[in-house]
Amino acid sequence: MITLEPWMMLVVSMIIFCIGLLGVILRKNLLIMLMCVELMLNGVNLSFVAFSKMHQILDGHLTVLFVMTVAAAESAVGLGLVIALFRNLRTVDSDQIQMLRD
């Protein structure tokens, strides 16, 4: 029987975090970038749980609750900003949003 070890959870969490980070860097759609930021936060959440299990304490689980709350507030603000942008420019493609340049 294979048991779920904390290090396996850590590997998964790092993979999720890296997918999120790459998405923020590489994708051009603002909504996808928003989702990737959330993905990064969720990857970190999983690593908090893994470390918590490793140390046999509950602090990590508590932190996850705080992070989820903050992530919800953050995505609400982000969607508001994207809507404001879409009203003016009719696009969510980050390549076409280039008014601020040196």
């Binding site: 975090f17 999120g20 980070l21 923020v24 603002l30 970038m33 928003l34 990737c36 930021v37 990064m40 936060l41 990857g43 970190v44 903050v70 953050e74 603000v77 982000g78 900003l81 994207v82 404001a84 942008l85 009203r87 003016n88 420019l89 949003i97 280039q98 008014m99 601020l100």
Partner: peptide
């Protein structure tokens, strides 16, 4: 809200700030 440059600045700040928060 009605100035697209302000929107762009906010979106840039938000995405980078959110990623760096993570």
């Amino acid at each position: 809200r009605n100035d697209s440059r302000s929107n762009e600045a906010a979106i840039k700040y938000y995405i980078l700030g959110g990623a760096i928060g993570a």
